[in-house]
Amino acid sequence: MTEVKAELVGNVWKITAKPGDQVAEDDVLMILESMKMEIPVTAPRAGKVSEIRVKETEVVKEGQVLVVLE
């Protein structure tokens, strides 16, 4: 199990992955918006998305778990 965390404080702009998706390393899982930049959150390794812990427009803290990969 791998937890994918937010690199910095920001809000969830667009979620592109959904639970059950099979993803490859570096696939974009969601896009955060911070400092007016779109910041892609990518899969650190290949795997299956087991959980998405946030919703679009939600404000996330640095280090907060966004996605869990199986």
């Binding site: 910095l8 400092m35 930049m37 779109e38 910041i39």
Partner: peptide, 10 residues
Amino acid sequence: QPMVKGGILD
């Protein structure tokens, strides 16, 4: 590097 943290300086 815009790929990481939007290239912001920290």
